[in-house]
Simulated assay, not measured.
Amino acid sequence: MSLLKRKNLRFTLLASLLCVAPAFSAVEIPAVAADTGATLQQLNVQYPIHFISIDQIAAGLKGRAPIDVGFDIDDTLLYSTPAFFHGQQLLSPGSNDFLKKSEFWDQLSNGWDAFSVPKKSALALVKLHMDRGDRIWFITARPMPTTGKETVTEQLGKSFSIPADKLNKVIFVGESKGAKVKDIRDHHIEIFYGDADGDIRDAREAGAEPIRVIRAQNSSNQPMPRNGALGEKVLVNSDY
């Protein structure tokens, strides 16, 4: 092949490659909104909360004689949102008016707790105190049923494996300010567990140590409290 033909062939091949070469264009990167994502500093933010575990509670009580301990019920011992949701659907769909009806509270404390779920953290906590021989009291902000009858005590006994001779009747005090103070004091309760700010304040006023149990994120009881906001100890992993 002559030199001229070779040059022409190289030129033809080069032209062909240029024709079929893919076209490259700049990929447009979408703008990032200022309120999305988080900096490392934001990811590392920790709140000054005094968390405590069940093992630490047990260690703190080691060697001590049995004591009296108290528990709130809803969102502390029981995830009772299913029972509340059931009542809402029957009595005031789409609104919270059912909470103002004595019919709801009567039914809730006489059978509807069958819809409630014992929290795993509460099962472990009650077992700790039962194994120690502590006396357990249940103090709830629910109003006393208008009939004077309730099945909550029996339900709690079954759910938490509390023998009949160790099972104290549930104390219904209602939602007025400081409603639990008298009963916490009268029963010489030294530790009181609850999820609400009122539980923490009432325990302190009565001279008991309050320990916050975390309310489940999907609880119907809104707005959510700020755990540790009152300087109380918070039971770790107690939202379920």
Rank of each mutant, 00 (worst) to 15 (best):
L90T: 11
I184D: 01
N221D: 15
L9D: 11
T147L: 06
I200D: 02
G63L: 09
T39P: 07
G231Y: 07
E150M: 01
A206T: 10
S219E: 10
I54R: 05
F160G: 07
A26E: 12
K127G: 03
Q107L: 10
E209G: 00
S102E: 14
T140V: 02
I54P: 02
H50P: 02
D106P: 04
D55M: 09
V213D: 00
L3I: 14
A164K: 14
P145H: 05
H129M: 03
R10M: 14
N227F: 12
S2T: 15
Q41V: 11
F98V: 07
G133N: 08
Y47S: 14
L78A: 08
L78S: 04
T151N: 03
P118F: 11
E28R: 12
Y47E: 14
S95P: 06
M130N: 09
L4F: 10
A34L: 10
V213R: 01
L90C: 09
L13I: 15
P145Q: 04
G87F: 00
S116V: 10
A114D: 15
A179D: 04
M1L: 08
N227T: 08
S116H: 08
K180Q: 09
L167N: 02
E190M: 08
Y193G: 06
L235H: 01
K182F: 09
K5W: 09
S80K: 02
S2G: 15
G111L: 11
D202R: 03
G178C: 06
D72C: 08
A38Q: 09
G148Y: 02
L61T: 00
F71T: 07
K127T: 12
A203F: 02
Q88V: 07
G231V: 07
A38P: 00
D131P: 00
Q56I: 06
V181W: 03
Q88R: 13
V181P: 00
K100L: 13
N110Y: 02
I184H: 03
H187S: 09
L90N: 13
D197N: 14
R10T: 12
Q88T: 06
R64S: 12
A203V: 05
D68I: 06
K166C: 08
F98A: 04
E150L: 01
A59M: 07
A65N: 13
P223S: 09
A23W: 08
R6D: 13
F84V: 04
A203C: 06
W112A: 05
